[in-house]
Structure formats: structure tokens, C-alpha cells
């Protein structure tokens, strides 16, 4: 049979592979997926927090970027405050995705540089009763995710009973902030945590978290 397609570009391949990881993790909260290496992005941007340069979690930032296009509104926060839409780091994302830069309440996707910024989750759009899918999705960079030292117990659709998972190096009230985004189902924020090795844990709004 004649094949009549162009081979996908490196970036397209990355986007598809990343999506399949996100899909699997979102459908099965507690599953730890591996985001592929975003090798097409050579210079991962840094920002300055408290006079210290901080480099973005390349897996978390680019997997968020893989879902953006000219129709989507994007924002990012670090160290518990929103980054100016006009800043270089936001331009970096816009240049590579064509997305629109936005304020927090109108953003459809946000990238949070650290777990401390989870304090801002309540500012995001949780959708409406008739259109709950219009809610925001948040990608959060965390230091480490594993199954070996569980800290959380997850329950909800996609999980056979319960699932234990370890999320390490995050602020104390991280779970409180996340659980607050899902107190009014079907409204809520869907969350994807990605660690420095590209380990990915999705927490759709249906997922309830308790501390172990």
C-alpha cells in the first residue's frame, strides 16, 4: 500500500510521545510516566529568584509547551508569584508555541516553577458547571517523584482501589493547595507534576489525595 505522509518532525515526535505519557498518567493517576528528553530545545531558559539563577525543569516546561498553540492562553509562576507576561521567559514559550500570554484567571495552561507556587492555584479558572472543561491545567515542577518512598495515597477514577506514590521536596501545604482545587467537582484544576528526571504524575480533578 502506498504511504502518503511526511515523516513527523523531531518536535512533532516529541509532542506525540509526550502526549501518550500524559494520557496514560491522566487516565491512571498514580502511574509514574517518563517524559521523553526534549532534545530539540537546546537552551533551556533560566530565571532569577532571590538573585539566584534558576533553570526551568525542561521536562515540565516543554511537556506543557507541547499542548500549546495559537488558540491557548498561557501563564507561569515562580516562587509564589506570577511572571510578567512580557518577560523573556514568557516570550521564550510564546516563540516556540505561538501561544497567547495571559493573566492567571484567563490562562488555560500554567507552568509553576516550584511547589511553593501551588499557593496560586486558587486564582486559576476552575471552569463552570456547564463548561467544566474550560478549566485550567497546571504543570508543576517538583524535585522528585517515586513509588519507593510513598508520601501520598490517591483515590478516584482510573485507580483500582487506591495507589500510593511519593512526591518529595515539596512545600508542606502542597496537598492542601491541590485538594482545594477539587472541592467542587465537576469544577476544578487538573494538575501534572513532573520531576527533574522527567517522571510524570498526573492528578486530574477526580483524584483525591491523602497524606500517608
Amino acid at each position: 500500500m502506498t504511504t502518503t505522509f511526511q515523516p513527523p518532525s523531531l518536535f512533532e515526535t516529541f509532542c506525540t510521545a509526550t502526549f501518550r505519557v500524559l494520557l496514560d498518567c491522566m487516565a491512571r493517576p498514580g502511574t509514574i510516566g517518563q517524559i521523553p528528553e526534549p532534545s530539540m530545545f537546546t537552551n533551556i531558559p533560566t530565571i532569577t529568584i532571590d538573585q539566584q539563577p534558576v533553570i526551568a525543569n525542561r521536562f515540565a516546561l516543554t511537556s506543557c509547551l507541547s499542548l500549546l498553540d495559537q488558540e491557548t492562553r498561557f501563564a507561569q509562576a515562580a516562587n509564589s508569584s506570577w511572571i510578567d507576561p512580557q518577560s523573556d521567559i514568557n516570550r521564550w514559550v510564546q516563540l516556540r508555541s505561538n501561544c497567547r500570554l495571559s493573566d492567571a484567571p484567563n490562562a488555560q495552561f500554567v507552568y509553576l516553577w516550584d511547589s511553593a507556587s501551588s499557593a496560586l492555584l486558587h486564582e486559576l479558572n476552575p471552569g463552570t458547571l456547564t463548561f467544566p472543561e474550560q478549566s485550567c491545567t497546571a504543570f508543576i515542577a517538583v524535585p522528585e517523584i517515586n513509588h519507593t518512598e510513598p508520601t501520598w495515597r490517591l483515590q478516584g477514577p482510573g485507580i483500582d482501589g487506591y495507589c500510593d506514590v511519593g512526591v518529595h521536596g515539596v512545600v508542606a501545604d502542597f496537598v492542601t493547595h491541590i485538594n482545594a482545587t477539587r472541592a467542587h467537582f465537576p469544577l476544578g484544576i487538573d494538575i501534572v507534576c513532573i520531576d527533574t528526571h522527567g517522571k510524570c504524575l498526573a492528578l486530574p480533578r477526580t483524584c483525591q489525595i491523602s497524606l500517608k
Binding site: 502518503t4 515523516p7 513527523p8 512533532e12 494520557l23 491522566m26 500549546l68 498553540d69 472543561e133 477526580t206
Partner: peptide, 27 residues
């Protein structure tokens, strides 16, 4: 035979479907 995109539809259209699939799973 014309050359089409991998998976026929353009990348942005795929992205839109992907975003909605993730929302569908969350709801």
C-alpha cells in the same frame, strides 16, 4: 499521490484534540 501530514490533520488540530481528550478523562 500528495504528501499529507503524519496522521492527516495538521499539528494544531491534533493538539486541540489532545487537550480535549485530557479534559474528557478528568471529567
Amino acid at each position: 499521490e500528495q504528501l499529507y501530514n503524519f496522521g492527516f490533520i495538521d499539528e494544531d488540530s491534533k493538539r486541540e484534540v489532545r487537550r480535549q481528550i485530557l479534559k474528557a478523562i478528568a471529567l
